[in-house]
Design a binder for these strands. Structure first.
Lengths: 343, 343
DNA sequence: AATTACCCCGAAAACGTTACCGGTAATGAT
DNA sequence: ATCATTACCGGTAACGTTTTCGGGGTAATT
C-alpha cells in the first residue's frame, strides 16, 4: 500500500527487491528462455507484488519491437472510423499487440499536414511497430515503419490499402431500384475529390446508362457524408418540379438525412419514396423503416488491415498491395416497387 | 526525397545538417528563449526541410512534461464512451496537448486487471501527463500521475470523477410519465453493482413512492446497457399478464431494444406504449418516433474531465473532488398521456 | 584430473532526447 | 583598462529499458 512519493517504480527497484540484476528482471519481463525456472517465478512474484509495469517510453526507445500498433482516425464521431476501430480492436485482441489510437483534431485547415505530423511523430522512431490510417488525405508518409490505409481518399498512393468495391456496390444498388421500376432516381454524393465518392457516382451513372436512362444533372447533389448534408440535399431533390421517386445516398448517414427530409415533407418511406444507402452502419438496421443499403464489411476491413500490417512488420511481402473487400446488397424496408400507374 | 534506409532521422542528423549542437536543436524544438532569432529560424528551416519530428518515446522519457493526455475507454463501440471521446477531443484541440486513446479489449475475464495494467503501463512512467478513464471498474490506480474518471462504476473511489445527477434524472423521467397518467411503469435496469444503475433504479423507486404507487417487482428487469438486453427485457415486460403502459429504460440503447420489442408485438409507440430513455445519445433523435429521454451532457463531461486533469497536472488543487453534471428531460415523441378510460 | 560444454546471470553499452552546467564573446559599467 | 553582466551555445549526464558480451559455476566428456 505504500506509495513512492516522487518517482515511479523502475526496473531497478524490482531488481533490488528481488535480489537480482536489472538484466534478469528484463529477461523475465520479456519471457526470455535464458533463465532458471525458480528465478523466473521469484522475480515474477516480486513484479506482481510491487505492481510494476515497464515504461512504454523506455521500452520503445531501446527495443526494435514494441508490440504496439497504431490507429489513426479522423475526428472521432463518424460511424465509419469507429467501425474500423472495432474491427481492428477485435483482430488485435487475440494477438499480443496493444493498440494506441490517435485522432487528428477537427481543424479543417491543416488537416492533412497536422495528421501527417502526428502520424510521423507516432511512428517515426517512437512507440508503434506500424500504423493503420483510416481515410487518409495524405498520399505519402515519410517514415520507414509500415503503414496500411483503409479507404484512402485518393486513388494513387504509396502505401498498401484496403478498400471496398464501391463501383460494384453502387451498380447493385441501382439495379435494385431499377428492377423495382424506378426511373427518376436522385443521387446524394460526397466530396467529389474522394475516391469512394467517385466510384459510387460512377456506379450510379453506369447503372442508369445500362438501363438506357439519360442522366439528369438536377438529380445529382453533393453532400459531405454527414446526416445534415443528406437532409439538405434531400430537401433540394424533393423540391424539384419533377421530384425523384427514389434516392440513392452515397452513405447511410446521408440516407438518415433523407429520412428526416421525407418526414418533413410528409412523405412516408417506402410508400412515397424509396431510399438506398451505402455502408450498412449499425443505425441502418435500427432505423424505422429499416434501411436498404449496400453492406460494406467495415470491421472486416479493419481486420484485413491488421493482417496486412502484421505481414509488413514481419518483413513478409504482400501478395496484393490493394485488397478489395466485397460489398453486397442488404434489403430491408426502405424500398418499394413503383406503382405501374404513373401520375 | 532521399530516404534513410535503416534508421530514422534523429536530432543528431538535424544538428549536423544545421551546423549546430544537439542542444540547440532541442532548444528550437521546445521554443526555449535562450537562443538567437536567426539561429532559431535557420534550424527551424532545416527541421522542416528534413521533415524531422522528434521521437515521442525519447522525449517522454527525458522530460517531465509530455504534452500528451491519455484516454482509456472500454471496448469501443458503445455510444457513451465515444461521446466522451468526442468531448475530450474537442476540449483538447484548442490546447497544445495531444490525445492518445487506449481501449481495453473486450475480454470480460481480466477486464479490470487488464485495464489497470494497460493504464499503468501508459501512465506510470511513460508517455502521458495524465489520464482520463471512462467507466472504470477499478477503484484505485497505483500511479503518481493524475487520473480523472468519468462515470466510475463504483461509488467509493480514490480518484476525482465527474458524474451525472442520475437520481435526479430518473426522478424527472418518472415525473414525466406519472404526469401523463401512467401507473404501471416498467423499468429496465443495468448491472446492479454499478453506481449509475443504482441511482437510476433508486430514482425509479422514489418516483413511484412519491406518487404513492407501490413497487411491483415484476416490473423491474435487469439488462446490461446493450440494445439486445433491452429487447429481451421489454419482451419479458410486454408478456406480463398485466403489461406496463410505459417503460423507462436506464439508457437509450436499451430503449432502442424496447422499440424493437414493441414492433415485434405489433404495438406502436407512443399510442400503445410510452418509452423514456436515459443519456440522449445521437441515435435518440434519429429514431422514429424521436425518443423522449434524460439528457446527460456526455461530451461536456469529457470536457470537464479534461479541465480537472489539467488542474491536477499543473499541481493546482481541485475545488471539488466529484463534479456533478446536470441532467434534463428532453421531450420528443415517444410518450403520450394515458387514455382516461382504463381497460 | 583436466578439459569442454552449457546454463545462468551480471556488467555495461546503447537508444534519442532534455536538463544542467559552463564557456565564449560581446556589451556595458566603473 | 579591467571587471561584471549578458546572450548565446556546446558538452555531458541522466531518463529506464533491452541487448550483447562475457564470466563464474556446475555437469559432462576425454
Amino acid at each position: 500500500m505504500m506509495r513512492r512519493s516522487k518517482r515511479s517504480l523502475t526496473i531497478q527497484d524490482v531488481a533490488k527487491a528481488a535480489g537480482v540484476s536489472v538484466s534478469t528482471v528484463s529477461r523475465v519481463l520479456n519471457n526470455k528462455d535464458d533463465i532458471a525456472p525458480e528465478t523466473y517465478e521469484r522475480v515474477k512474484a516480486v513484479i506482481a507484488d510491487m505492481g510494476y509495469t515497464s515504461s512504454l517510453a523506455a521500452r520503445s526507445m531501446r527495443s526494435l519491437r514494441k508490440n504496439v500498433l497504431g490507429l489513426i482516425i479522423p475526428d472521432a464521431g463518424a460511424p465509419f472510423p469507429i467501425e474500423v476501430m472495432k474491427g481492428v480492436n477485435r483482430a488485435i485482441s487475440t494477438l499480443e499487440y496493444d493498440l494506441i489510437i490517435y485522432t487528428c483534431g477537427d481543424t479543417r485547415k491543416h488537416f492533412t499536414a497536422d495528421r501527417e505530423k502526428k502520424f510521423v511523430s507516432l511512428l517515426n522512431n517512437s512507440v508503434t511497430d506500424g500504423v493503420i490510417v483510416v481515410t487518409p488525405e495524405a498520399t505519402h508518409f515519410n517514415t520507414n515503419a509500415p503503414v496500411v490505409a483503409v479507404d484512402p481518399h485518393y486513388e494513387i498512393n504509396e502505401y498498401p490499402s484496403v478498400i471496398s468495391t464501391n463501383w460494384e456496390g453502387a451498380m447493385e444498388a441501382m439495379g435494385h431500384l431499377l428492377n423495382l421500376g424506378h426511373q427518376r432516381i436522385g443521387f446524394i454524393s460526397g466530396r467529389y475529390d474522394l475516391q469512394s465518392t467517385n466510384r459510387r457516382l460512377l456506379g450510379y451513372q453506369d447503372g442508369l446508362a445500362k438501363a438506357g436512362i439519360p442522366i439528369d444533372p438536377e438529380l445529382i447533389t453533393q453532400g459531405d457524408f454527414s446526416a445534415d448534408s443528406g437532409l439538405k440535399c434531400a430537401r433540394q431533390l424533393l423540391s424539384l418540379t419533377k421530384p425523384p421517386t427514389a434516392i440513392f445516398a452515397a452513405n447511410d448517414e446521408m440516407a438518415m438525412g433523407v429520412y428526416q427530409a421525407a418526414h418533413e415533407a410528409g412523405l412516408s418511406i417506402p410508400e412515397d419514396l424509396s431510399v438506398v444507402g451505402f455502408d450498412n452502419i449499425p443505425e441502418a438496421s435500427q432505423s424505422e423503416p429499416g434501411l436498404t443499403t449496400i453492406h460494406q464489411p467495415i470491421q472486416e476491413m479493419g481486420k484485413i488491415a491488421v493482417q496486412m500490417l502484421l505481414k509488413l512488420i514481419e518483413g513478409e511481402p504482400l501478395e496484393e498491395n490493394i485488397i478489395k473487400t466485397p460489398t453486397c446488397l442488404v434489403i430491408r424496408d426502405s424500398c418499394q416497387a413503383l406503382e405501374p400507374v404513373r401520375q
